[in-house]
Design a binder for these strands. Sequence first.
RNA 1: GUUCCCAUCGUCUAGAGGCCUAGGACAUUACCCUUUCACGGUAAGUACCGGGGUUCGAAUCCCCGUGGGAACGCCA
Length: 465
Amino acid sequence: MTVRTRFAPSPTGFLHIGGARTALFSWAYARHHGGTFILRIEDTDVERSTPEAVQAILDGMQWLGLGHDEGPFYQMQRMDRYKQVISEMLLAGSAYRCYMTKDELDALRAEQEARKQKPRYDGRWRPETGKTLPPPPDGIPYVVRFRNPATGVVAWDDKVKGRIEFANSELDDFIISRADGTPTYNFCVVVDDRDMAITHVIRGDDHVNNTPRQINLLQALGAPVPQYAHLSMILGDDGQKLSKRHGAVSVMQYDDDGYLPEAVLNYLARLGWSHGDDEIFSMEQFVEWFDLDHITASAAQFNTEKLNWLNAHYIKQADLHRLGDEVTQRLARQGVSIAGGPEITAVLALYRDRAGNLNELADAVHPFYVMPHPGEEIRAQHLTEVALNALLALRQRLSTTPWQTAELGQAVKQTAAELGLKMPHVAIPLRVALLGLPQSPAIDAVLEVLGRERVLTRLDAVLPC
RNA sequence: GUUCCCAUCGUCUAGAGGCCUAGGACAUUACCCUUUCACGGUAAGUACCGGGGUUCGAAUCCCCGUGGGAACGCCA
């Protein structure tokens, strides 16, 4: 049997970090087994679903590189199929019409809650042998309810949580078709999972309580029951639950914030899953290793600092031309063009080991392309009379120094030596003159990459005429 | 309220009865490297929620408690 998994988001917002991890695990499981990964858009909530959200989810999946093999399927386009199954169930007696109004239902629930009972449908329209139902009232649209087994237990071996059992007596007859004739979530999921021959349902653990209902439905339909793996939730950095109002951000925000997708993926892979002590691995390696047995059952707290560490690691590894493209774009957004400046890959080679994200990298590289204007405080502190004197001497030497790292380093050293100064007393003012900052990578390398012309121009700009 | 789930360093986790005086990683601290800032290297501190069992032996199995979470929609 080939493995078929699916990711089934509802398009009511962007793809957030929790959804992304669910997608990643479903995708990896299918890939690991040479199976099929299906994308299904659960858009039956017409009120809240938007085409923008569909696009945002697609964009997020693409940025992460989680390609699907089938779909995207849209539930709204499968209405005829759902209605067909509902009429079959009505005919077979596994579902029935319920004429209770919404108001009556609300009243019932309020009363149950007042008595501190679990709110649930009381089965008043459920056909039972020997029970006479009232005649269907006129003018009241009906909903269709699933006739859930009244006794016994539903159980399954959850691949992450182990065996879970529910007593059928805890489950009420839930609505599968609304008064307006549209099918509901639990029903659509079941029909789709069956029609799409899903073998492994990997989803968030907020669905644990839906699972027994879905299994009962599946069985009523005579369909095979897939394996279930319920992933526990991801908490925010502060240990609080993520929500639209609190901390939940689009995966695309990570792009904006300067994260590489492979860093986000690697981080997410380790959040709730492990392979011994391995921390850093490629997606190829992840797919090879991934299994359901090593998924943690408890909730995990998101840790931005660890993500940052991984991101820094991947920036160090990344191809310089790719980093060049990323940084060029980010600079362009700030109105900075690299045209006419030093070779971007050469500059990046100096900075990639010291940046935590792409935006920091862009900021670091910025002064190479824009004439720096060190602030008053920095000038006062570093461009002292002694320092300027040294820079003047250095300027003269640099106008003839062969433009190679070793020679340039020598030039700075000799200047310092001749003036009886220590290295930092020359190198730091030089950094300020060249880049507007007292810190930089090795000064000889900075000189080399900047080029003689720009170096002399920048020195002249701080030197008194 | 009811049902269900969860519980190892601050955080992510290893751990499937003896290999655990509990390992790795992030973070923290110290030192080293160094022309600055980083990077890197080395080292240190920090954890099995509590109580009962089972067993020769429990972080690992069972029960209870405590704490946290989820669900109980004509939302998904």
